[in-house]
Amino acid sequence: MSQSARTERLLNLLFALMSVGRPMPKSELRSVIRAYAESPSDEAFERMFERDKDELRGMGIPIDTVEGSDGAGGIEGYRIAFEDYALPEVELTADEATVLGIAARVWEQAALGPAAQQALRKLEASGAAAGREVVGVETRIATAEPAFPILLDAVAARRAVAFGYRRPGDVEPTARRVQPWGVASRRGHWYLVGHDLDREAARVFRLSRIVGTPAGLGAPGAYDIPADADPITMIASAARDGGDRTAVVIVGPGAASLRRRARQRVVLDGGHERLVLDFADDEALARELVGFGPAVVVEEPESLRAAVVRRLRVLVEEGP
């Protein structure tokens, strides 16, 4: 069947369910909708009707099943209540339409792009004033990872997923089973946060490390998302930002970018500064500081100083 004929059939089913003003019995739908009337058998009609109903519901069209009044539990018919179907009246000012226009461009080529454009058209059909073509701010968020829409649906359905996960440097992916709580973006990377069923703990997964397509696991609605789940905090702590230790370093003019994250700065002679930095891990901070070469010298703690000197020695002896 051609797409055009199928669209026409769906459209006529929609009109029949929405415009007649009473529940439409299946038998009546079969006689008034030509494509149904022409179906060769009862089975063919049943299959067609069920598929069409699912298709409309999948688009978010609310089809009510109205039970018969005889109490026998039979189905009297189907209807679409206009008040459930229709987008409520939204009156937008020109300024509001303008920010919605900027918002609809945020996803542009990304997975949510078509949904955003469609949402904007619906709002504009609802009597919105025309927005201005603004200059001044533009935002783009990419979702290049093929797992993104699948995981979004899994979170909505509260259904566990299974996928292969490969950290940088892993030779083979490991199999992971996760109850997804949400997806989140930080510093341009997308993450899945959720409950890892094998580790029995909350975990963070980078979407770009997921190998292949995540598969649904078990029934939808199988778990609750904790009300206090905070994806950004989980990702930040997985990335080990900040820390509860402090380091003191002397920086020269070549290491200005380190100043921005200093908790305290004291200007010294000769363009040097003494900085106090928060950190968690000797090796992680040593790695960063070595990148500045002779422009940064650690004063304390001794363990950090030793870690830097050890790295520098290895560089001099083995080289990059």
């Binding site: 688009m59 978010g60 069209i61 206009f82 459930d84 179907y85 229709a86 987008l87 409520p88 949510l112 949904a115 955003a116 469609q118 949402a119 058209r121 619906k122 709002l123 059909a125 609802s126 979004l152 909505a156």
Partner: peptide, 10 residues
């Protein structure tokens, strides 16, 4: 006469 309400994705 009215647009369909917004889907969750929209």
């Amino acid at each position: 006469t009215r647009p369909l309400r917004l889907s969750p994705d929209e």
